[in-house]
């Protein structure tokens, strides 16, 4: 029991790194994903092909490989580019390159979700908007976007939780700088000290579960706010699956 409480205290700072990685990559990934989804839905063949290819490549390959690839690419550019610019310590820092790769990855997954929602936007509403003489920008702002975000939100919530889970492998691919260890690294080093796999990994799992629940809760609140124009829907079970 004492060991459990100790672990909880030791891992409390560690979970902040996971939260940082997720929080740093979600907003930028979101914006990037909107553009990618629009690109995949665009009629311009070049933009369409490029967005499609990007989404396919990043959804079809493991995040672990993406981490290694971008980190080693950044390393090989170190002497020729980063060092002369004097930013090598910044660019090669896991706290920078970790969110960067996560952004590239989550943008692709989120774009696929948004693209699905984009295609599900009711045609009639779009036609009505056109009939009113709205410009394409107005159509997007007033008709497409409100529909898209509401349709995509539940799936996007899942993607955010998956992204948070994906932060667990950041430090398996990137070097740990000083004491900046996330949950997995902390659990692993604690395990290597006393070989108590059940305790340390369970506490790490508990933290992941807790944060996932918090994410579900917050995103559920946002979903309620998005859906406030509709009468309270009994059908939306936004309680995470493991509590049902």
């Amino acid at each position: 029991m004492q060991g459990f409480l100790d672990d909880l205290a030791i891992m409390a700072p560690a979970v902040m790194f996971n939260i940082y990685f997720a929080a740093a990559s979600i907003p930028i990934g979101f914006v990037l994903a909107v553009f990618l989804a629009l690109g995949k839905g665009s009629n311009n063949p070049l933009i369409n092909r490029m967005s499609r290819g990007y989404i396919y490549a990043f959804r079809g390959s493991p995040l672990f490989i993406q981490f290694f690839m971008f980190y080693s690419l950044a390393l090989s550019l170190n002497i020729s580019v980063w060092r002369p610019l004097g930013i090598s310590g910044f660019v090669l820092h896991p706290l920078f390159i970790g969110p960067m790769v996560l952004i590239l990855n989550t943008a692709a997954y989120t774009a696929e979700i948004f693209y699905g929602a984009l295609r599900a936007v009711p045609r009639g509403e779009l036609e009505a908007a056109k009939a009113y003489g709205m410009s394409p920008r107005q159509q997007f702002r007033r008709v497409v976007w409100p529909n898209l975000i509401r349709l995509a939100w539940p799936a996007y919530t899942n993607e955010v939780v998956f992204l948070f889970h994906a932060t667990a492998i950041v430090y398996f691919a990137l070097p740990v700088v000083g004491g900046q260890a996330d949950l997995m690294m902390t659990a692993k080093s604690l395990f290597e000290r006393d070989f108590n796999a059940f305790l340390h990994f369970s506490v790490a799992a508990l933290y992941f579960l807790l944060v996932s629940l918090v994410i579900f809760f917050i995103f559920g609140l946002i979903y309620q706010r998005l859906m406030r124009h509709l009468p309270a829907q009994p059908g939306i079970r936004f309680v995470p699956k493991w509590m049902r």
Binding site: H165, A166, A168, M184, K188, A197, A205, L209, P240
Partner: peptide, 18 residues
């Protein structure tokens, strides 16, 4: 629900060790 609620890496490492 529990296995899906924790990252796959965690379980992937934990199970062989355990």
């Amino acid at each position: 629900s529990i296995v899906r609620g924790v990252p796959d890496v965690l379980f992937f490492l934990f199970f062989p060790l355990a």
